[in-house]
């Protein structure tokens, strides 16, 4: 995303190598190869869900790579009086650390942040992806899910990394279980004041219904509580729907994935595609953006979208298996820790 100056000779070298037969990239990867992706979930203890992702980090002293940290935090919102929406809402934001773009001024950094935020927010907060368990009390209280992504380093392909990290953080998010309650004042004349007793019944007084009948609870309840303070909660709904993004760098004759910064500078035409793969349904294209100087013919665009879907499916599957592995690793770690006491 940031401008890195490259000489004309370097750009032409990269371009001719990519268009040779067979195509050759600077580090020898195939056109569709991704660099090594390192993923860890549960890195921010104060957040409801978090993930750290690094694409292309060199081992040992090499450093480098595109590093992104994503975390979700849930806040309660008032639907009637506040900003809340019935059923909850999601807000995404991307921040870029100045260490990711050390040669940019803070204004330019803000612009990069804004662009990335827009793409992420418009895709993730769309109603087709909305999870079902973000509501608390219908029409009264709901969850606001804040998804914050921080870019610590950018070595190319930052948008794919952001979407992968966002998906991982959302996968890792646990929504606290709530139980609707209502304080019910004792009927007049029925004894001493126990008006502030927490009673789990909801119906209007005088109907003679049993206090155990909680059928209408959620409809009329005014507040909620956490039944178990220490329980992390249930998994955020819609795990299968969160999209992955593939960025196709487009050359006249073909395209390639996961560009490094010099490659991005040499092939400025990029097609970002975000796909969602809900289970037992055909895949959905959630976002499409064509950036950079250049143009595409419509048939070319169609084939690129079809190809993009294939790549996204592979990425989706790989990411999902890695996420399940991470869950397992953390459960095993927790179990071992508990057992060793």
């Amino acid at each position: 995303m940031a401008s890195v100056s490259l000489s004309k000779a370097e750009k032409s070298f990269i371009q001719t190598s990519l268009q040779a037969t067979p195509p050759l990239r600077a580090d020898g990867r195939a056109l569709l190869d991704y660099r090594t992706v390192l993923l860890e979930t549960g890195v921010a203890s104060q957040a409801n869900g978090s993930a750290k992702l690094n694409v292309g980090k060199a081992p040992l002293e090499g450093g480098g790579g595109t590093e992104v940290l994503a975390a979700t935090k849930l806040e309660v919102e008032d639907v009637e009086n506040g900003d809340g929406l019935d059923g909850g809402r999601i807000v995404c934001a991307v921040t870029c650390s100045p260490s990711a773009y050390p040669h940019l001024s803070s204004n330019a950094l803000d612009e990069v942040q804004y662009d990335l935020t827009m793409i992420l927010h418009q895709t993730i907060s769309h109603q087709t992806l909305h999870p079902k368990n973000l509501g608390i009390l219908p029409k009264k209280k709901s969850w606001l899910l804040n998804l914050d992504v921080v870019v610590f380093a950018d070595a190319g392909n930052v948008l794919d990394a952001i979407f992968m990290a966002a998906r991982a953080a959302l996968w890792d998010t646990k929504v606290p279980r709530t139980r609707a309650i209502q304080y019910q004042a004792k009927k007049a004349g029925s004894g001493t004041g126990s008006g502030d007793m927490d009673v789990d019944s909801g119906n209007e007084p005088g109907h003679g219904l049993s206090g155990f009948d909680t059928r209408d609870m959620a409809r009329t309840a005014a507040d909620f509580e956490l039944p178990d303070y220490w329980d992390e909660g249930e998994v955020l709904d819609g795990r299968d729907r969160w999209p992955v993004c593939v960025t196709l760098n487009v050359l006249p004759s073909h395209h390639y994935l996961d560009a490094t910064t010099p490659e991005e500078a040499s092939t400025p035409l990029k097609l970002h595609l975000a796909f969602s793969f809900p289970t037992d349904q055909p895949c959905h294209l959630q976002a499409l953006r064509l950036l950079g100087p250049g143009e595409l013919q419509l048939p070319q665009l169609k084939t690129l979208i079809a190809d993009g879907e294939k790549y996204a499916k592979e990425l989706f599957t790989a990411l999902e298996s890695k996420l399940r592995d991470e869950d397992l690793r953390r459960n095993v770690k927790a179990r071992d820790k508990f057992a060793s006491r």
């Binding site: 000489s7 004309k8 000779a9 032409s12 070298f13 001719t16 190598s17 040779a20 037969t21 067979p22 050759l24 020898g28």
Partner: peptide
């Protein structure tokens, strides 16, 4: 600024 022709073996 123009590169010479470079064959594939050299590029690799």
């Amino acid at each position: 600024n123009r590169n010479d022709d470079i064959d594939d073996a050299t590029r690799a």
